[in-house]
Computed example of a mutant assay.
Amino acid sequence: MKIAELIFIPFPAMGHVVPAVETAKLLVEFDNRVSTTVLLMKPAIDSSTIKYTESLAASTLPDRMRFIELPSLDELRSSKGAAFLGCLLYLQALHDEQNVDITEFKNSDAELEIPSFVNPMAARLLPSMTFRKDSVLVLVGAARRLREASGIVVNTFVELESHAVNSLSKIGIPPLYPVGPIVNLGSDQSDNNSEIMEWLDDQPPSSVVFLCFGSLGSFCVDQVKEIAYALEHSGKQFLWVLRNPSQGKMESASDFQETLPEGFLDRTIELGRVTGWAPQAGILAHRAIGGFVSHCGWNSILESIHFGVPIAAWPIYAEQQFNAFQMVIELGLAGEIKIEYSEGSDSGIVSADSIKKGIEGIMEKDSEIRKRVKKYE
């Protein structure tokens, strides 16, 4: 019997490597005519990715599945959901067929009629790499190559992105295969989360708001303080994954004293927990979680929808503003803290009042957003 080999080349960050590995596992378990190879690039973007890839070497892998570690390569990006793929092809057409300088959209008030969206989107919400001369050429080149592919696999599902999937089928691109949601439901990678899970076990159903901004998501000290004030004055129970400000490094809770407002941890000891890391999928699956303040990375979106947890969108970098627009405006599956936010930009500090309002909105038990999200659970 002839074995077909599939090769995965994920961007070296946690949010890309894990879905690639999970997809590879599903394929070899589903069809004994398939083998998979995952190419692991170096250096990894964050320490959690390093730990994860190290754990793969020590784990028992399915037959016909292997990993190969590669040396460091130039920056690569993979597409996200179907709407993002449609945007990528739309931008390539603007560049190649209409000679549009896409980088000029950065400070533009223009609204784009992207075929994979029903609603027009502000051009300034495009992925950040479209605004740089060097990286936009990489993006356009990737879109050209996608048009030459035999098929495109996307981590999404038709029920979520029906308009985007249908729009792509009309523009003559290769066949599209929505295979999602592929989410990481595997074992936890840390031995230090038992206290967090035990605390969640003691909380009422849907009572805790979970704040997590991805493996690279961090804020300046002033913004961290505003988040802390919002949580304290909201009175909502919370679990907050806090990175070292503006560096994205993971720290233990004992290192937060200098970053958080004086006395915050003591005053909120009965209200919530702050940690440097938490098993996101496991947390979102817990019955105590009622809302998710998120950077809107695509994997986080799929996990929140899978577990029926409404999002308060607060994008930070890359394509997250695009994803936030899709969730808030296009699909109505998320509330908003600030869609047009970018760390280090002129957008300024998001106030505690705005954060508090966003949290309260997703924690309403009978909100329309919660009802819509629960339909996909």
Rank of each mutant, 00 (worst) to 15 (best):
M363P: 05
I301E: 13
V138N: 14
H95V: 05
P205V: 15
D31Q: 06
G272N: 13
V309I: 14
G335Y: 06
S252F: 03
L185I: 03
V165M: 06
S206K: 15
R147A: 11
I152D: 11
D366F: 02
D96T: 13
M121P: 02
L85P: 03
S47E: 11
L302K: 02
S35L: 04
T268Y: 00
Q237M: 05
S78L: 06
R66M: 04
I355E: 00
C212H: 07
A149G: 02
M41D: 08
V17Q: 06
P43A: 09
L216R: 14
A230M: 01
S35A: 13
R77E: 08
E97G: 06
G214R: 08
K225A: 07
V221A: 15
T53A: 01
W240S: 00
K42S: 07
T259Y: 10
H295G: 01
F292I: 04
G151H: 02
E251K: 07
E69T: 09
E377I: 04
F11P: 00
G344P: 14
R267K: 09
E159A: 13
L70R: 02
G180V: 06
G308T: 05
I349C: 12
A228K: 14
A312C: 01
T37M: 11
G290N: 08
S108N: 14
K106G: 02
L126Y: 02
G248A: 12
L333H: 02
E148A: 08
F131T: 04
L176T: 11
E360G: 06
L39V: 10
S304L: 10
Q321T: 15
V100Y: 03
S246Y: 07
A324P: 09
I182M: 07
F157C: 09
T259I: 15
Q92S: 15
V165C: 11
V373C: 09
